[in-house]
Design a protein around this nucleic acid. Structure first.
Lengths: 212, 212
DNA sequence: GGACTTACTGACCGTATGGTCAATAAGCAG
DNA sequence: CTGCTTATTGACCATACGGTCAGTAAGTCC
């Protein structure tokens, strides 16, 4: 009951390496909730529990704060999937199954990730950096994983040979997972199509469609 | 060279039924380009070639204009697909093929539609009307069409029986088309995955995955 | 032509918000 | 304790933008 973690701390001085991520976290929330134009610097400050002026001590402008916020999210999003991919030994269909399951699980779990995705869709046109970031750090890595699985399946004789190098197939394979996330953004978790149904139907279609 | 269609018309008076759609068109452009918060009423007026005050003669507020703009888009988006569905006689796989082709063709063609979709993703959280509109007028109708095709295929013995009523399958079937549109929003037409490749891979996967 | 309705204009207002800055005090070195 | 650095504040601009309104003139009916 003494040191409330979000009480109006009376001028607690922090070193930049502690204050900066705090501001970035607050900024991500605010930008995600209101979009770039709708976000207010005063609200970011309030979320971070500091005065507005302090933000400008760390970032020269709203735009700079926005860019920094996005770049701070470059953390490896696909670590788990890539680890699975590297360490897998059994049949490719099992690998595919567990990767798809990971994908749909994240949709429900990782709020941060959906927020970032929405921000990218919303602001990509005005901030080319965002589009580049999505293309290189998210789409390219995701399709890379998908393609690796497809090739592994072909190599093992489980999938028909054509799928190893069909252009666009990797994108098509993962599109339903991404749309599940988009639907959830639009409709909310109560109204959006149930992730479990999507996952099962998706997996069923994939296994039938890819098998030799 | 006399009556330039977008010259600063010197106080040309128009009946409301002519002025209203002009304002709505301008508003759709502005909202699509800047989002709700970023859109400026003065810019809408300028796009429509009128004074800002006139907008308030027709719409009481920015929010009302936004709602009206969206509702004006409720035109039957799926007319073409529904006509195809009703009038089709041959094999279900051909119907499926031609519907998928229509879907990918629209992605390239109908800018208006992509704009609306983006606006929905962007603003659905703040305007529940938008989410409802998307759910009832777009998603429900699209999945309805998909489900009808699946059932027709099962009835004709072309598709395996399970696909007639698998929950979530209709959504999974059309997800790649929608994602193609989203990718195009984010990456632009030069950087986004080629619609033709996506279409071919998508169709290949579907026919293999659904067939009996 | 005169009277009347109403589409239309543009100057104006209040407020919200991005950004500035001089003053303040927290932490630290001596 | 004294003095220094700099993180932190909050009052303060300048401006942009949503919204208002008194006035103007385009079209129409007689």
């Amino acid at each position: 009951m003494n040191a409330g973690s979000d009480a109006p701390q009376a001028r607690r001085r922090l070193p930049p390496e502690a204050r900066t991520p705090q501001i970035l976290r607050a900024a991500l929330e605010e930008f995600a909730e209101r979009g770039y134009a709708g976000a207010r610097m005063a609200a970011v400050a309030s979320r971070a529990g500091i005065a507005k002026g302090l933000i400008y001590h760390y970032f020269p402008s709203k735009e700079a704060l926005f860019q920094a916020t996005v770049h701070a999210c470059t953390r490896p999003v696909f670590e788990e999937a890539e680890r699975q991919l590297a360490g897998h030994a059994g049949p490719a269909r099992d690998l595919l199954g567990s990767l798809v399951r990971i994908g749909y699980a994240r949709i429900g779990a990782d709020r941060q990730e959906r927020i970032l995705f929405r921000l990218i869709i919303t602001e990509a046109e005005r901030f080319p950096d965002l589009a580049r970031f999505y293309r290189d750090e998210m789409l390219a890595r995701a399709t890379g994983i998908a393609r690796a699985v497809l090739r592994a399946g072909v190599a093992a004789g489980e999938f028909r040979p054509e799928v190893a190098d069909m252009p666009g197939l990797a994108e098509v394979v993962l599109a339903p997972v991404l749309m599940a996330s988009v639907w959830r953004m639009i409709l909310g978790e109560t109204e959006a199509p149930a992730p479990e149904s999507l996952r099962d139907a998706h997996l069923d279609l994939l296994l039938r469609g890819l098998s030799a």
